[in-house]
Simulated assay, not measured.
Amino acid sequence: MPKPLAGKTIFLTGTQKIQTIAEQVEEYGGKVLAFPLITIQERISWDDEERICNSAKYDWLIFTSQNAVEHYMNKLRRANLSPSAISCKIAAVGIKTAKALQDEGFDIDFMPTIFSADRFVQEFPGNAVDVHCLFLRGSLAKSTIRDALLCDEWTVYETVETTEHVGALAESLLQEKEPVVIFASPSAVRIYAKYIVPDLHWRYVTVASIGHITTAVLKEYGARVDVQPSVYTMQAVIERLIGGVSS
């Protein structure tokens, strides 16, 4: 019986762990290659311990990525504290973010129906009352949550664009018959558009996007987005590809 991903190569441009994805893609006849165009690093400051202690005083902590969870936990452990010391309510954007928090011992009190900042502020239960929130964010996060909820922010990690894998990515794309490139962030799109697109036009690849913000940036750079699932996860993209989505 033909496998739906036979002959297709899935290119990942972010920092996601790929083992589970690779196994699933291979099961359906394809293969996965990872060429990260961004890297993540913790932002460390002299007042981290003080800020960790102060974070316990908020009504809500808001996490929109696994990276925010990881680096918040790094700071918590360095302060010799555990999640049991944090009595705030917890808001998470995305299944993976929620799972990362639960794995650390947190309960999830709110998660929006669509994993985006726009939907978060519309559905957040505290948006009409006087609550004190802290948004744990990355350096490139938009101000949507801060502006809508008038909350405090703490940048716990940096997203750094990298060109280390650009040459290998371009070479591999040229060697594959049916390349599918998955973008999970606007940052990866910008690097790809700057270094890859001038020599290898968008039309030579199937473009998949995670999230409407990433899709909007892809379109700004002239890409046609072939796959964008309504659920903003890597798993949902793979499921759409397995289902034979091509446009």
Rank of each mutant, 00 (worst) to 15 (best):
M1G: 13
T13W: 10
G14A: 12
I21H: 10
G30W: 15
I38S: 11
E42S: 10
D47T: 09
C53R: 14
A56C: 13
Y58R: 10
I62G: 02
M73P: 09
M73F: 15
K75L: 05
R77T: 03
N80K: 11
N80V: 00
S84G: 08
S84I: 08
I86D: 01
S87D: 12
K89V: 06
A92N: 01
A98H: 04
K99W: 13
L101P: 03
D103K: 13
E104C: 15
G105W: 05
F110L: 06
M111D: 00
S116I: 00
D118M: 00
P125Y: 07
G126C: 07
N127C: 09
A128E: 09
H132L: 05
A148G: 01
V160W: 06
T163C: 10
E164N: 13
V166P: 14
G167F: 15
A184K: 04
S185N: 13
P186H: 02
V189P: 01
I191V: 15
K194T: 09
K194A: 06
D199V: 04
H201A: 11
G211S: 06
H212T: 12
I213H: 05
T214I: 07
A216G: 02
V217R: 00
L218P: 00
Y221V: 00
G222N: 02
Q228M: 11
Y232W: 13
T233A: 10
I238K: 08
E239Q: 14
R240H: 08
L241W: 03
L241V: 04
G243N: 12
